[in-house]
Design a protein around this nucleic acid. Structure first.
Lengths: 153, 153
DNA sequence: CTGCGATACGTGTACATACACGCTTTAGGG
DNA sequence: CCCTAAAGCGTGTATGTACACGTATCGCAG
């Protein structure tokens, strides 16, 4: 309490704070979405595909700022559950992922639950904080970019 | 841009924004820590054990706001790498986890890399944002608590 | 002493995440 | 036409994450 500044053993880690917050909020959303049978990550994928029509996997990964190979794995359970389909396209080296009727139905079920928890969270954290979250992520992207430059240089 | 308010199709999801930011910042930290051979999650565990002396697993999990069973898995690679040890204690139902010399050495190597990236991030995002991150996580904990009440009631 | 709730731990299962690698195909320069 | 760079995809491996379940021990009420 009486340490002036700049000293202090390192304890607070921005990354771990972020991860902690991520874990916590994920648990909240997953809990809220439970009646729909899908998790928030899956809900997000379905919404993205619904919005951006049939897309190939790489594009979808970029949309979600997600590693492509991660997305490939994440699609698996959704395909098995018949919530979406991935079919070969004209270009034989790419596959088009599109949502099924079952997927649309599931979204319709999940949406009210999502809205409710989204509202609850938005009340708890004010809007500035939420917007800040986006700018936060964007700022971080910048850091990544500059790191990449440093490497390729 | 000209939509007044309250309308707008749902697109921004607080949870997914958080997860995205978490993925991004994790990648940055892991990249920075690469020369030390450990990831930021592992660095965090080692630091916690070093700071809080030998602790049992449940306590450590609470410290990290992490599910206990998750921590059990996360300890595995660290034990295999001999960075820490988990030994039975007087109380036969609990194990004491303590850091090894090799673990201490690894921390010493990793620390400067951690400090550098932490500083870089702190410059990019101002301090208020970082503090806000903590309050953010705490606010979320409140939501979890109230949800739990709602269930047990 | 017996039984029961609370404490502490681990595993099975399933999903999320990303890096290293390898494969196929396409487009374009020579 | 050939060859190479780039685009697109998937898998092996390893870690992170949490829930459901089961096991063992302790402390204590009766």
């Amino acid at each position: 309490m009486n340490k002036s500044k700049t000293e202090k053993a390192p304890s607070f880690c921005a990354c771990m704070a972020m991860r902690m917050a991520s874990r916590t909020i994920t648990k909240i959303y997953d809990q809220a979405l439970k009646p729909s049978g899908i998790k928030v990550t899956q809900f997000s994928i379905l919404m993205n595909i619904k919005t951006h029509g049939p897309v190939n996997i790489s594009t979808l990964a970029k949309l979600q700022h997600l590693d492509r190979t991660t997305l490939v794995r994440n699609l698996k359970p959704l395909e098995i559950a018949k919530l979406l389909e991935s079919v070969p396209s004209n270009n034989p080296r790419e596959r088009q992922v599109h949502i099924t009727d079952h997927g649309l139905k599931t979204i319709k079920i999940a949406l009210p639950y999502w809205k409710t928890i989204q509202r609850k969270i938005s009340n708890k954290l004010n809007l500035e904080q939420l917007n800040l979250l986006e700018s936060f992520a964007n700022s971080l992207e910048d850091v990544v970019a500059s790191e990449d430059e440093a490497i390729s240089r």
